[in-house]
Design a binder for these strands. Structure first.
Lengths: 362, 362
DNA sequence: GTGAAAGCGCTAACAC
DNA sequence: GTGTTAGCGCTTTCAC
């Protein structure tokens, strides 16, 4: 018929059936844990022996066609080369493969159109579910999946309305930890390099920063915010420049993520300033290697691997039963104190309160 | 029949055919670029309009079952959380998705059994080909794929015998660059922290180191090697300790990769030594962030993203035509000079040649 | 408990 | 150029 070259070793269920001298449907039943009980032990053993002898692997695309379930899960990440997604992917694939699912990874960027296109491609492969690390606060991909009744779980970034389950870090709490730490060191003029407002991480961390500053009775005018145009070192540097230029009294920066913080490092260097002597900096994420940059970055640690695992668990449950309520899991972040934060220079703006707070440091 | 919940929007070819008032096979032909020419333009337009109206996506598992081709490619990485594999994956998925393939990523570790199991799983999904970033110098997974006539391309690590196509960096050349640089700075006692000898990277870089040292007429006794038990910072630290303890005259280290070099950093720190004043260190790979560690790491840069792209290209061609000769592509590495290398301390071992070489530095 | 038979959605060989 | 038909390999209903 076609010129398709049959893969050597692509053993079919019929060959196994012939070897075990049973019907192919019996082979199917014997090999499926769900239906194994319907078969005599003796026959089942014979089938299993035959399957092993031939190194039989059921064709999943045939099974998928028949059952409507592919045991394939799609994962969309905005940038596979960005270091924070590596541990997320690691957690996701670990858990999914343990549950018998294979993972289709798509590097989808931040634009909607390619994302939709990639999702359509994944749907064409009849994925049983989707994990999105790309979600915006109002995500069109989520809407599309909802229409199609395709199980989805969000990871790292959540939607504003909780239409689907998600696993994220408690971003507000993370910012409170960061600000508390700086205030404790004696800082009162703290700036924020914000992430994109369209993403939950950008939005909630900015709000968390403002709330945390307010909780210390610091006026908004002494808590300036500059929003970066992307989660990159370069965009972080640009925002840091604006912040430093407009607010020379600043003694500390809280960045919405580590890459933005590293951009601030670059600006300090280009201006001949040093961290933490001239400026304290706090990041967010604790990406790999943040303990080795110079100065080692004080940052809010998120358990990205756990986040990936949890998201995979949620998705597996949702794929098993479609009627489960959506769950929005928040993981607790922790502050990792390193060398990029210290008390502000005493000379900067002497004040009784300042001196008192500053003296607290060990 | 079954209790399978039909996915909303899972439009079949028959529905498209009904809407376009043609037979399903005509729809298939009209939508397939290969067979489109067999159809009248007018009918084709009608079919395409109907397909768009219904948002039709052909079921790839059905097509796969019929054609024997799944448009699925499996990628095996030894550690998805290891930063060097992120850019490789990025290049691979970029190129594969451009060619219409989806990528099944498996985090396979370094053990053979789980690797085989994962590959069997990928084969069950009827992948059209495999990209292995996991290969050992004599790889059992490759053997298995060869038996099954499954297209494979190796990336980053090659086999000793070139049974299949591969894309790797020229590891020997990389080591020559590293050693040349150190010798030029005045170093004569240079140690090597080697990678696993069972992997081409470990084996060829160690041999490259020895050859490069010999090319400078440095005796093997002044070019000691310690092999690390894994490509990790911790294993690098252990090997560095052995090297320093046994060869106190050493003034420089060339590590088989960046992580091992960072392990050497850790040992210098624990012994109160500084790099590059007391010891110069060169890495290999130029992973992300190596410019930001302290001191910024001098290292051999490999174009991992390009490597991934090339490997994907090779695989696509191999999947199209099975009779292509194997190709073993070597990418040229470059040396990135940063702050972790400098001339050895003049005091260390004064000698006329040493002084002369050292004086060369700018 | 096992066999027989149908059919998932698609494509390609074969008619006309 | 288009319709008809068969069948990819599997699972599941239906018979016995």
């Amino acid at each position: 018929m076609s010129e398709r070259r049959p893969k050597a070793g692509a053993v079919t269920i019929k060959e196994v059936a012939a070897l075990a001298r049973v019907h192919s449907s019996t082979v199917s039943r014997a090999l499926n844990p769900q239906t194994r009980s319907k078969i005599t032990d003796e026959v089942a053993q014979r089938v299993i022996a035959a399957a092993n002898a031939l190194n039989y692997q059921p064709d999943r695309s045939a099974a998928s066609l028949r059952t409507g379930r592919s045991r394939l899960v799609g994962v969309l990440v905005p940038d596979i080369a960005n270091l924070v997604f590596a541990p997320i992917l690691s957690g996701v694939t670990e858990r999914l493969s343990a549950e018998g699912y294979a993972t289709l990874v798509a590097d989808a960027g931040n634009e909607l159109d390619p994302q939709i296109e990639l999702v359509e491609g994944l749907i064409a492969h009849r994925v049983d579910g989707l994990i999105l690390a790309t979600a915006s606060r109002d995500d069109a991909v989520v809407a599309r999946c909802l229409e199609r009744d395709l199980p989805v779980v969000l990871v790292n970034r959540a939607e504003a309305q909780s239409r689907v389950s998600s696993v994220v870090s408690d971003d507000g709490r993370g910012m409170q930890l960061a600000v508390d730490h700086l205030v404790e060191l004696g800082h009162r003029h703290i700036g924020h390099i914000g992430g994109l407002e369209g993403l939950s991480t950008g939005f909630l961390r900015r709000r968390g920063f403002e709330a945390a500053m307010a909780s210390h009775k610091i006026r908004a005018s002494e808590a300036p915010v500059e929003t970066a145009s992307a989660y990159t070192r370069e965009a972080g540097a640009e925002a840091a420049r604006r912040l430093f230029d407009r607010h020379p009294a600043l003694t500390a920066i809280v960045a919405a993520n580590d890459l933005l913080a590293l951009g601030a490092y670059d600006v300090l260097q280009e201006r001949g300033l040093t961290c933490p002597a001239d400026m304290s900096i706090v990041g967010h994420n604790d990406m790999p290697l943040m303990d080795l940059v110079s100065p080692a970055l004080t940052t809010v640690r998120i358990g990205h691997r756990d986040m990936g695992r949890e998201a995979a668990d949620l998705l597996v449950q949702r794929m098993l039963r479609g009627d489960l309520p959506t769950r929005n899991v928040m993981l607790a972040p922790t502050l990792v104190r390193r060398a990029s934060t210290a008390a502000p220079k005493a000379a900067a703006r002497p004040s009784p309160r300042r001196a008192k707070l500053a003296s607290r440091r060990s």
